[in-house]
Write a protein that binds this DNA or RNA. Structure first.
Length: 746
DNA sequence: TACAGTCGGGG
DNA sequence: GTGTACGACTGTA
């Protein structure tokens, strides 16, 4: 009586009675199925209290089955718990809330783990997993995955994608047209403000006609989808946004939160059922990694695709840890939200405090090897079994003998996959079409690995522990010191060290092969994988702007032997630098990168000067498009909370007057203008007057960015030279004209 | 000079 | 349903 389908698991979510599963069949059909799935929470505490909880649970309207069990709490060992199983997954949340408010003194586990994650753990599946599904009627009786999240080349699901994009951000302007694309169909329509419902009918018709799996929008979360829902509600039109018509569209409110030292603004979200909606503008991963990145994130974190697209750093890595815990029958502690978080010594991505930071040797250096440990922190967490529950000895770079803890257990397959993808890249030809996909997958994974380390030190993380976090940085320091010793033993000069990398130099070492002996010596001494980032033709470490005798560790730029640039910390890297300034600085660097070696820089100086002059002239003559002069800054607080009238705060005030709000975490774009208030917010209606642009201010910013690059180059090239060149030179924030000598024969 | 505010890092 | 460092730098008063 049963039937078997093979296909891709598309979506899993709870319904009234059990779970709804969507499968994209090999037959091309979209199957809606259901599956019985019971979910559990666990409580531990004094026996009489558990007894009371048991009695109370039996009287609740939600059907539960209760059992006493022994389960593993990683911090406390095996513990007796009351297991509460709920056959209706959708009702777990309300029951759990009632439990914690009625019995707040008990310790709870697994209470807040999402249903799709539980399902993924139970059947070892993930979004777009290839599966064989055995069905009776519409009910799944067996589901067997045919692949794993760790496969290097997953068979692509035949997704039907409908793309809908207005021509501008509706929050900043009024879209005039909308472009709709499905497979080879692609058309652009005017948006007619007089015929309000016409957009509604167009989009509705296309959804009906194409029945897409994925509706991919720009600003769909904040504009198109709310408009569609509202129009349908107000006029009682039917609207097949969901493929599952029995389910409501899931709306989430906008919110602002802190993440990794930044305020992040997340607009409202609209999730669909039986279909996906992904707003590329509201998706954390979308812009950098595209759909490939979203799907890879969904695979390895096992979060539903619509969630994966909007995933925040901590959620991805904790999802992976939760799945590991569920699959290994490890309890997941439930933490109360702690509103008052005392300041801790927690380090985040930068990890300055725990990592070694060296003072580089200021100036331009020739033929320098850039050497990095590969995925240093996550690699060490796996290799040395660093996990909150694993007892630690000193950081002696010897693997701990105990069974792998939950953190290494979670990281190991991810790390292995990423390394495999990286080595696959080395073997593929430059033009292989799989290359960009693999590159993207590896990049998306890198992001999870980096986050994982920061998460260990976060006191509210379920599987975090500050000692484990400190152990990682201690191993890191040890490894870098050993690398330094190795370099010194082989007579290399250390120019700089930074957390997991070092810059070294030795006369005669100018090709990757010349550094091989050093790499193997470091591997020998540390047991860790290390790679040559590249050999620089030249690299410049910059001095501090405040005190030019003091080096700063993370402001540098250089050119590798293949001519590619590496640029850190300078104007071009900052997101609040006007594009014109950033592009000029990068253009200048690209020009200088044309010299095959540092000696050739001298010959490029006139060209560089001409390049700079040309751009400065364009700026002075007002030929630079205004968009290229826009400064963009992220707000860190509400408008009213600014105590100092910074340019960004003044720009936001203008927007406010024009009736637009900017929330903390959102960006404000403005131009520097003459007189008061000195800025012009870009997103107020109306064209700014070109004559009001504060060209002098832009010229100063321009010169500053040019000098960041040119001053050290000129210094290294000069030397008893003749001729002269006038330049603004920053000295302790005052501007001073300095005559710079340049050889006459240039 | 003091203070307020933004940014980086990864790729 | 995220996990609020720290130093460099810029702008304002």
């Amino acid at each position: 009586m049963s039937e078997t389908f093979t296909g891709w698991l598309f979506d899993v979510y709870p319904n009234e009675t059990n779970l709804t599963l969507w499968l994209i069949g090999e037959d091309g059909q979209r199957h809606r199925l259901s599956q019985d799935f019971s979910v559990s929470v666990y409580a531990s505490g004094p026996f009489p209290r558990l007894r009371q909880l048991w009695k109370w649970l039996e009287e609740q309207p939600v059907q539960v089955s209760l059992a006493r069990q022994e389960r593993k709490d990683v911090f406390r060992g095996m513990a007796p718990v009351l297991a509460v199983a709920v056959a209706q997954p959708a009702r777990l949340d309300e029951l759990f809330r009632a439990m914690i408010s009625k019995f707040p003194d008990l310790t709870y586990y697994d209470g807040d783990i999402s249903i799709p994650l539980r399902h993924a753990a139970a059947f070892d599946v993930f979004p777009l997993a290839r599966c064989t599904v055995e069905v009776q009627g519409e009910k799944v009786v067996k589901i067997s995955p045919l692949n794993t999240p760790w496969d290097l080349e997953p068979e692509a699901a035949p997704l039907r994608i409908l793309t809908i994009e207005p021509d501008c951000d509706p929050a900043r302007g009024t879209p005039k047209t909308i472009t709709i694309a499905f497979e080879r169909n692609n058309y652009t329509l005017p948006i007619n403000p007089d015929k309000k419902a016409s957009l509604f009918w167009t989009v509705r018709a296309d959804i009906k006609r194409f029945d897409p799996d994925l509706i991919l929008t720009s600003w769909g979360d904040t504009w198109l989808m709310p408009y569609m829902v509202k129009t349908a509600q107000e006029n009682a039109y039917d609207l097949p946004l969901n493929r599952d018509e029995g389910q409501a569209v899931v709306e989430r409110k906008e919110h602002t939160y802190f993440s990794y030292g930044q305020i992040v603004y997340r607009g409202q979200q609209v999730h669909l059922r039986g279909r996906w909606h992904i707003d590329r503008e509201n998706a954390m991963l979308w812009k950098d990694y595209g759909l490939t990145g979203v799907l890879e994130m969904a695979r390895v974190t096992r979060q539903p695709a619509q969630e994966a697209a909007r995933l925040s750093p901590g959620t991805g890595i904790s999802s992976m840890q939760f799945v590991t815990a569920l699959q290994n029958k490890i309890l997941i502690p439930w933490h109360k939200h702690q509103a008052e978080t005392p300041k801790t010594a927690m380090e985040l991505l930068r990890s300055d405090m725990g990592g070694i930071v060296y003072q580089p040797t200021i100036g331009l250096h020739r033929e320098v090897g850039g050497i990095d440990f590969v995925s240093m922190y996550p690699g060490m967490m796996v290799k040395y079994n660093i996990s909150p529950e694993v007892p630690r000895a000193a950081a002696d770079l010897e693997p701990a003998p105990s069974d792998p803890g939950i953190v290494p257990l979670t990281l190991a397959p991810l790390l292995k996959k990423r390394l495999a993808l990286k080595s696959a890249l080395l073997t593929l030809s430059k033009f292989d079409c799989r290359r960009p996909v693999i590159q993207t997958m590896a990049s998306a994974e890198k992001w999870l690995l980096v986050t994982c380390f920061g998460y260990l030190g976060y006191k509210n993380a379920r599987f975090g522990r500050i000692e484990a976090h400190e152990a990682v940085t201690a191993y890191g320091r040890e490894a870098l010191l050993r690398a330094k010793e190795a370099a010194e033993a082989l007579d290399f000069e250390i120019l700089h060290m930074y957390v997991d990398g070092l810059w070294v130099r030795k006369a005669g070492c100018k090709t990757p092969a010349d550094f091989e002996a050093l790499l193997s010596e470091i591997t020998e001494r540390t047991g860790l994988p290390i790679s040559l980032d590249g050999v620089y033709r030249w690299v410049v470490f910059l001095p501090s702007r405040v005190n030019e005798a003091v080096p700063v560790p993370n402001r540098y730029f250089g050119v590798f032997q293949d001519g590619t640039l590496k640029v850190r910390g300078i104007e071009a890297r900052r997101r609040d630098t006007a594009p014109f300034i950033a592009e000029t600085q990068m253009g200048l660097l690209e020009l200088l990168a044309k010299a095959p070696e540092a000696d050739g820089l001298k010959d490029l100086l006139p060209k560089a000067q001409a390049f700079v002059d040309k751009h400065l002239t364009a700026l002075r003559k007002g030929q630079v498009p205004l968009e290229k002069l826009l400064v963009s800054q992220r707000l860190t607080r509400e408008v009213g909370e600014y105590s100092s009238p910074s340019p960004a705060a003044r720009a936001v005030k203008q927007l406010q007057v024009a009736g637009r709000t900017v929330r903390p975490g959102q960006r404000v774009r403005f131009l520097f203008t003459l007189g008061r208030p000195g800025v012009h917010a870009w997103d107020v209606p109306g064209e700014p007057d070109r004559r009001c642009i504060d060209l002098h201010r832009y010229a100063i910013l321009f010169e500053r960015a040019v000098e960041t690059v040119m001053a050290p180059i000129r210094q290294s090239v000069a030397g008893g030279a003749e001729g002269e060149c006038l330049y603004l030179f920053p000295v302790n924030k005052a501007w001073r004209e300095v005559k710079v000598e340049i050889a006459e024969d240039l």
